[in-house]
Amino acid sequence: MTRYPGYDVLAKRDTPSWDEATRRVVDARLAGPAARPVLEERDYRTLAALCDAVVPQPDRAEPIPVAPVVEAAIAEDRTTGTRFEGLPTMREAWGRGLAALEAEARLRHGTAFADLTPETREALLHAVDAEEVEAPEWDGLAPRRLFRDVMADEILRVYFAHPAAWSEIGFGGPASPRGYVRLGAGRRDAWEAPFAPPPDGGER
């Protein structure tokens, strides 16, 4: 599904596009997070399903690991500097939010969030985003804020921190000390992704 088949930013790892600092950071990321499990089995299943709903990867033989990294971030209490009114601290927001998702799924569909079909899961998340929730577990959690600015935010940051996601969208990836020369539209440097076919009408 990528518009840039065959392009792999990792192929540039040993060129001047990558410096030592970046190599160390990305190597460590690819090795996976140090296991710091903080979630109950049930919550982890909900988290994994949530990650899959926010960034579904049916096209990937080797999906980008998202849930374990998010869990590690929760374990580290990785905060963003903002706690919006109506939300508890980061770690608590995740714990209660995952529980609320699970409760909502059971209330509506009588089954675990992780066992919903992708379509039902997506519909449920749209309902959460529209703040049309019924489970009492949402009390004291602003559902839209929680979904967009805590959960989806972190999930997307983790997904787009992976080189495979950079390759997928044709992003140049790490660039230091070598940056870019050809800055004009429709121009590329020899160390960039080949051009993709022009976009169709988008998704109107």
Binding site: A31, Y44, P65
Partner: peptide, 9 residues
């Protein structure tokens, strides 16, 4: 965690 360490591409 149920997930094993992610595979290294």
């Amino acid at each position: 965690s149920p997930a094993a360490a992610p595979p290294v591409p």
